[in-house]
Design a protein around this nucleic acid. Structure first.
Lengths: 248, 248
DNA sequence: CTGCGCCCTCACGCGACGTGAGGGTCAAGC
DNA sequence: GCTTGACCCTCACGTCGCGTGAGGGCGCAG
């Protein structure tokens, strides 16, 4: 396909299964600017525009706000192939969640009386993607607890807690580098250490909640960046270890 | 589990993975009213409330607006098991879509240069669920065309078109009752007849667009009702026939 | 009684578009 | 050139579904 093919807004809307208004909006906010304009100010999109739109849709489907999507895509460090790889991983998780949800519905249809309240919602994901633990959980008991505890800690203790957390990350990286799988006893022990760390210093954290928290690491690219700076693939590794620990 | 267990709003939020604010909102709009109130006006939810919330989440995840969800759930004809069955079918479709999207990403990551613009978005679903063909497509060329054509038809002709459409539905039902699978030549021929019917009398309709239109039948319970009135399972059957026809 | 976790109502505000008004552009046909 | 139909533009009000914070009450343990 030739690189100089251009599509008008209606064609793009149809191809990408979005509305024309959406494309107008994305242009307005600078998220997706058409690379060309025809006479009469018609928007004309090129191949690269479509590929950017694909990335936008992927992130948006994950629940990221548009402004954040823009920040991510405009980041000089943005690696398109890496992003696709991470999206792929997340899609596989969503597929697994769908499987679980199907099983939940099957049990409902069979009139399974043993289902607990939690069973009713097995397979449903957390409502909106948690963007920043602090920012997003601002009104949650967990955050309030952690803030209140934090206020009681001296600077020295806070520093020690931070150091302990960083040590945990390095231990995870070492464990990964040593070739232990995320579901190995070693990795799971580290995941449990991580959970207890949070539980002790910040707020009560069940294994289940730990899984949900850990999933931040692959949902929000900037959040994940913290982990990937320590070691490549660490975020994914930690999530898997935490998940394995919760399943044990 | 005992039927008299009650949950406070925070517990429900955690179990169902929604926010407390969401539950407040649903109470306000009459979508999900807690069955009890404690002293101090604390909301207390029972088991039936949780099951209704499950249904709400299922429909909401499909993209139905809340007001419509309420209309559906409050409909005297609402059949919970039937709804679960339809949800299950839709979830399987979503899983298949996810598979296709994963394949799309795989091709991207391999640097497949033969991908067309349409290939880039294979597996992405239509943005928002089409609610009513007329209502939802109000600003689309297809609807405008159909409205303009309609204005040119006499009452008699409109009646004849309507009769032709109803005959089509009956033919579909007969075909299904005769045991022909939705991908049989018979069913596919009917799907093509349906497409041409719309194409001739209302607006141009490609096979692909026909698939998307047909998916309305399983997404919107009230829309689907029209088909199910003719024969049980007809909506699903027609969607499958249309899909098979488009794939041929 | 105090402190902490959780709950209430009230209400402003936001993100992501939906919708319609009013008008222009493009291409085919007469 | 004119007409028609499909498609495009900008502008802007409005909607939906909550997010967020203010200000205050409730339940329980110490």
């Amino acid at each position: 396909m030739k690189d100089d093919v251009r599509w008008k807004v209606g064609e793009v809307a149809r191809i990408a299964r979005v509305t024309i208004r959406t494309l107008h909006h994305y242009d307005e906010i600078g998220l997706l600017r058409p690379s060309h304009r025809a006479k009469g100010e018609y928007r004309l999109y090129g191949r690269a525009d479509l590929e950017r739109l694909q990335q936008i849709r992927l992130y948006r489907d994950l629940g990221l706000p548009l402004e954040e999507i823009r920040a991510v895509l405009d980041d000089p460090d943005f690696d398109r192939v890496d992003a696709l790889r991470r999206h792929r991983a997340r899609l596989e998780e969503k597929r697994d969640e769908t499987d679980r949800l199907i099983k939940t519905l099957d049990r409902m249809m069979q009139g399974d009386e043993t289902m607990t309240a939690e069973d009713l919602f097995d397979g449903f994901d957390q409502e909106a993607m948690e963007r920043e633990a602090g920012e997003r959980w601002g009104d949650s008991p967990a955050w309030k607890t952690s803030q209140q505890r934090k206020q009681r800690y001296s600077k020295e203790l806070t520093g020690a807690i931070q150091a302990e957390h960083e040590q945990l990350l390095r231990d995870f990286a070492d464990c990964m580098a040593a070739g232990h799988g995320p579901d190995s006893a070693e990795a799971r022990a580290l995941a449990e250490r991580a959970r207890l760390h949070i539980d002790r210093w910040w707020y009560p954290l069940s294994k289940e909640a730990h899984v949900q928290l850990a999933q931040l690491y692959v949902c929000d690219p900037r959040f994940e960046k913290t982990y990937e700076t320590v070691a490549e693939g660490l975020a994914r590794y930690v999530v898997d270890a935490v998940t394995a620990n919760a399943a044990a």
